[in-house]
């Protein structure tokens, strides 16, 4: 439902489907042929972050292109995407350097702190988006779909 609500434009839908398919194919190939062990390491996670950042930027671009006269931050979708966007941007470097950085055990606390803060921020923003959608379930916009209990 959230996907349908967010991916409301043709460009965003096409980009999501294309991006996710490419990601899944690349991930499978990587895991089968190149992965150093059977785990989800820096390459797929970085690619995932890049994909999410790109999709978020497309979402924002589509939103500012829309002619409707309501503020973007009134939309719950905006907060969902903002949460994902900030989390993906914030964790981009720590995922890339995770393997290398965590070789030194003293960095583990820092890693956990940064990751923890970003996860809390992500959850707070997503929580706010859900609350916003609950609070005004009949908010009439072209994209927003109400969440009803």
């Amino acid at each position: 439902m959230i996907y349908r609500s967010i991916a409301s434009t043709s460009l965003l839908r096409k980009a999501s489907i294309f991006g996710l398919s490419t990601y899944l194919i690349a991930l499978t190939i990587y895991l089968v042929f190149y992965a150093d062990g059977d785990y989800y390491d820096k390459i797929p996670s970085s690619f995932q972050n890049v994909l999410l950042i790109a999709l978020s930027i497309i979402f924002f671009y589509e939103q500012i292109k829309k002619p409707e006269a309501f503020f973007i931050y009134d939309l719950p979708e905006f907060w969902y995407v903002t949460g994902v966007f900030l989390h993906s941007a914030g964790t981009f470097f720590i995922y890339i350097f995770a393997k290398f950085w965590l070789q030194d055990v003293t960095n583990e606390a820092d890693y956990n702190n940064i990751h923890g803060i970003l996860t809390i921020l992500y959850n707070v923003i997503i929580g706010f988006a859900v609350w916003k959608q609950y609070k005004d379930p009949f908010y009439k916009t072209s994209t927003s779909k109400p969440i009803t209990a």
């Binding site: 924002f60 503020f71 900030l86 941007a89 981009f92």
Partner: peptide
């Protein structure tokens, strides 16, 4: 060095992301 890269990189990415969102709004 990796620690610096991670700190500054993360901080920079977050700054860029927040800047982009603020700009859009």
């Amino acid at each position: 060095n990796v620690t610096y890269v991670v700190y500054f990189g993360t901080f920079g990415m977050l700054l860029l992301a927040v800047g982009l969102i603020v700009f859009i709004v």
